[in-house]
Design a protein around this nucleic acid. Structure first.
Lengths: 232, 232
DNA sequence: TTATAATTTATGAACGTTCATTCTTTTTTA
DNA sequence: TAAAAAAGAATGAACGTTCATAAATTATAA
């Protein structure tokens, strides 16, 4: 279960909580049950907070010294818990990193497909997705760098990687539609990805090393190169 | 001093060696000196062999379990020397990896610019380089994977990375010429690299995972995408 | 040429850390 | 008071690196 699902459940619980708070003036008996619920809620919230803090700590540390640089001890310290506590939330370090991977990938995909209008043309829609992705990577540098590190580490299992790819389904669908319409080249999705999405990672890398600025002009040039490489 | 320089010196020494071998019938006194030289030569050769064995062992191990998976103990075992012996050739693990990086990058560049005809047009020359690189990565899978791992690890210092880039100078020169002639887009070399060279790494990655075959047709499509993205 | 001393080269064991993970105890909650 | 949650200390393994010593080579002496 990912962070977003958790937050959703939390919202629902909060609504119930408020309802029960007002009920409390009416029914003394129920009050006792409510107190328990409120306490449970606080517990649940604390659990959620801890889990998120652990994920966030891992993200930060991976960014600063790679995945092997993010030791369980350091993660625990930053999240202000004991190392042993991590194992109440995650089975192992691999599990922790995998869950973080899926969480971040999901939030990346969510950003990529926001304001996504199915009525628009393939080109417009693709451009929207592309710039959404670019903006996400620019504004969420830690997440972006983490994701590109995950592409090259054996700690992420093939299965997990496949699960992560699922989030990008709308993009693959769009590519198929583009091909059918004769707008996009009839080449494999791997080639499409290699030339339209993957280069971003390189440019972000260079930008983070201070070697290549990524201003608006460069971004436009980059999109142009992307489009030229995949359009018919 | 890299492996190639070493081999060059070795060749020169061998020539001297043969010359002296024939001299030995003529001059008894010199013979003693020659024996020494021959012994020294054998020593030198053994040193060179060990160094190469260590580099090769590192390459193999990095390929199998990442850079952190290539422990000094394992490297020593595969190269059939003591862990302590590694430190007679390399200052540290970082030094070992850096030297391997430069060695491999150099051999990659050598392959990239072989059969490189300065008389040809920019497009022909670029195509030559591109396919040279692709073939190198296909036939030297371990080296290619190692190089792409080096792009993302903090163990390689910025200085070393810059040194590695020097090997690709002819390509950057070609891009400049292409721009002057109005054949290539007037965009930064980083963009050029991101769209013409970097995608190869992704495709090799997918190929090695058995996800995307890289037959001749796919290669041609890939080059077409490359060229479309950078040509005016 | 041979015996021995000096020097270089290579080694295996050991060092001090750090790692992911677990175990026992303490604290918090119900 | 019982149960659950969290903590800190401890574990064994693995890491990069070093060190005292052993082996191999070279220099020197007779």
């Amino acid at each position: 279960m990912n962070v977003h699902s958790f937050l959703w459940y939390l919202c629902l619980f909060n609504v119930i909580l408020v309802q029960m708070y007002f009920e409390h003036f009416l029914n003394e008996y129920l009050f006792i049950g409510k107190i328990k619920i409120i306490a449970n809620m606080a517990q649940l919230q604390k659990s959620i907070d801890k889990r998120i803090a652990l994920l966030k700590a891992t993200l930060t540390l991976v960014n600063n010294g790679g995945i092997q640089g993010a030791s369980m001890a350091k993660i625990a310290k930053i999240a202000a818990v004991s190392p042993a506590t991590i194992y109440l939330f995650f089975q192992s370090k691999q599990d922790l990193v995998s869950q973080l991977y899926l969480t971040v990938k999901s939030s990346f995909a969510e950003a990529a497909f926001s304001d996504y209008d199915l009525q628009e043309s393939v080109e417009i829609r693709f451009k929207k997705i592309w710039f959404n992705m670019a903006n996400y990577k620019l504004t969420h540098q830690e997440e972006a760098s983490f994701l590109s590190q995950c592409d090259n580490t054996p700690i992420i299992e093939e299965k997990t990687r496949q699960d992560g790819l699922q989030f990008l389904t709308p993009l693959f669908d769009l590519w198929m539609k583009g091909k059918e319409e004769g707008i996009l080249k009839d080449i494999s999705p791997y080639l499409m990805y290699a030339y339209s999405i993957y280069p971003m990672a390189f440019l972000m890398n260079m930008k983070n090393r201070g070697l290549c600025p990524l201003d608006e002009k460069t971004l436009e040039e980059s999109f142009q190169a992307t489009w030229d490489s995949i359009k018919v």
